[in-house]
Computed example of a mutant assay.
Amino acid sequence: MTSITPRPYVRWALPALLALQLALLAGCSSQASSKCYAKALPTRGEGGLAWGASENIARHKSLEYCARYASRSGGTPDTCKVVLAQCK
């Protein structure tokens, strides 16, 4: 009599798929409150784009990111200015 042995991936396939689905849903749900965005650019170097619950939060975060990225890329972090800010 022959017995059928389940394949090794069958045991973890369903839990892995459920975990993936939950992770994707969690990632999407965090952006539901971030409907506003802002972009800040320095005169030289890389700028920063940020999302936030309000336009002011997005502006503040984009200025912080701009200063960080500008200094890393050899730019001028003190010259960062918000060039675009809006809410969807």
Rank of each mutant, 00 (worst) to 15 (best):
C36Y: 04
S3K: 12
R7D: 04
Y37G: 11
C28I: 03
C28S: 06
A40M: 07
A26E: 06
W12A: 08
C36G: 02
A23S: 10
P8N: 07
K35V: 10
G47Y: 06
L49A: 06
Q31A: 04
L17I: 09
A16N: 01
R11S: 01
Y37T: 07
V10H: 06
A50Q: 15
A23L: 13
A26R: 04
N56L: 13
P42Y: 14
T5N: 08
L41T: 09
P15C: 01
G47V: 09
G48D: 11
A38N: 01
S29V: 06
C36A: 10
A26C: 03
A58G: 11
I4W: 11
E46V: 12
T5L: 07
R44V: 15
A19H: 03
I4E: 09
T43I: 13
Y37S: 14
L17A: 14
A53T: 15
Y65V: 08
S3A: 12
G45T: 10
S30A: 10
G45M: 08
C36L: 01
W12H: 08
K39V: 15
C28W: 07
G47C: 08
K61H: 11
L18A: 13
G48F: 04
S30Y: 09
A58K: 06
L14M: 09
I4H: 08
A23D: 01
K39W: 11
A50I: 09
A50V: 05
C36Q: 03
Q21N: 06
Y65K: 14
L63E: 15
S30V: 12
G52N: 07
L49H: 03
K35N: 05
C28G: 12
G48V: 10
G27A: 04
E64T: 14
Q31W: 07
W51Q: 14
A58W: 05
L24F: 02
G52I: 11
K61C: 01
G48K: 05
G27D: 00
I57D: 10
P8S: 09
L49Y: 02
A23G: 10
G48Y: 05
R59V: 05
S29A: 13
G45N: 08
I4T: 08
G52Q: 04
A58S: 13
L24T: 03
P42R: 14
L22C: 12
C36E: 03
S3M: 09
E64N: 13
Q21S: 11
P42C: 15
K35D: 03
L63I: 15
T5D: 09
E55I: 13
R7L: 12
H60A: 15
G52C: 11
W12G: 02
